[in-house]
Design a binder for these strands. Structure first.
Lengths: 205, 205
DNA sequence: ACCTGAACACCGTTCAAGT
DNA sequence: ACCTGAACACCGTTCAAGT
């Protein structure tokens, strides 16, 4: 997967960053439907330049998603080394919820639809590995029931995320719902149906 | 809200249904990006006819969403009369998960973005009222903790829904995640932060 | 009243000309 | 190498002509 095809020329690199920043801002403010023309204008470049750097509008979006996802993975990795193994997972989710960093872009990137994109695929599996580590540590510490898997936790969190996006007026309820997630995966005598979905279940064949 | 503007002519009504059926099928199979041209062709009408019945592509989608949402509300209403007040809620969610009826269209309709559409707004509040009734009954029966609200349950369920859509390979995990939702809202000694978001929090001002 | 397809508008994408 | 804007393609939407 060759992603480092020798450094760009100074002006090109500058334009690339300007485009990413402009796009991130426009997408956050006006949704994914903003035109390439507006983004190019705000970045101070011509329309054509966008497509010189990103083969398609979707690739531009993907680049932002990768940024956010990498940021989140880094955040989680730090917590993996925390002494309190039982709380690190919840601390992580709590920080994700509180972060301005990740608008809708981040978790939209966890859909299978996007998996076609190589860079997203890489960033995603990195993120999942970190989350998996946090879940395992929490289980080892007895803070999370042993019969749930990463995907179970991700599902619950995606729900919180999606809901917060759908009902911005009730957005302050996100922390509250984290309590519900905590309750859901707390140690329990009631077994869950079926077996925990593995990471492999989330990946295209 | 005048929605019954006198019956359509026979051929017009037939075309309307054909369009709704064709659109529902195409959307399910190929996503919301399918062109109006394809839909019109499959329905056996001209492109222009689509816009005679639905002012915009979004309105066509909305009509389908309303169909599904009404169907789900009806289903829930029947369960409201069930003798087992404690299980009716879960029975409802279980049936929703199992239903082929509601592709992604249904819960996409619960976003605030769509609330602008009057018909969706009506169908949505109908659905929410039913869900609210089921939650209340379950709480009265002691099957659900008293400090959660409809929106909490909806959030959890949206998560399940969204996840099932994002990870179709792990779709059989939906029933499993229902167990997690059950665990989340089971009676508990640990109080939740904040207060339960009300229906008003979910509506535009 | 309703149906139709040609015409229009808009926006993502390409490309020839310029630096 | 890279930048640019005019040109192209595609698709949602409109509308004049037809039944």
């Amino acid at each position: 997967m060759g992603e480092q095809s020798r450094p760009l020329r100074a002006d090109a690199e500058r334009n690339r960053r300007a485009l990413l920043d402009a796009a991130a801002e426009m997408f956050r403010e006006h949704g994914l439907e903003v035109g390439i023309a507006e983004i190019a204008q705000r970045a101070g470049v011509g329309r054509g330049t966008v497509f010189r750097r990103f083969p398609t509008k979707e690739h531009l979006i993907a680049a932002i998603v990768v940024d956010r996802m990498t940021w989140a993975a880094d955040l989680g990795r730090q917590l993996l080394d925390a002494p309190e193994g039982g709380e690190a997972l919840f601390e992580f989710l709590e920080q994700l919820v509180g972060a301005q960093q990740l608008d809708r872009a981040l978790f939209d990137g966890l859909d299978e639809e996007w998996l076609a994109n190589d860079e997203i695929r890489a960033a995603q599996s990195e993120f999942m590995a970190v989350l998996d580590g946090l879940v395992s540590r929490a289980q080892a510490a007895g803070a999370v029931r042993s019969d749930v898997g990463v995907l179970d936790v991700l599902m619950l969190f995606k729900g919180l995320w999606e809901a917060a996006r759908s009902f911005p007026h009730a957005a302050d309820a996100a922390h509250r719902q984290l309590d519900l997630i905590r309750a859901a995966i707390a140690p329990s005598a009631q077994p869950l149906r079926g077996r925990a979905p593995t990471l492999a279940d989330a990946v295209l064949d």
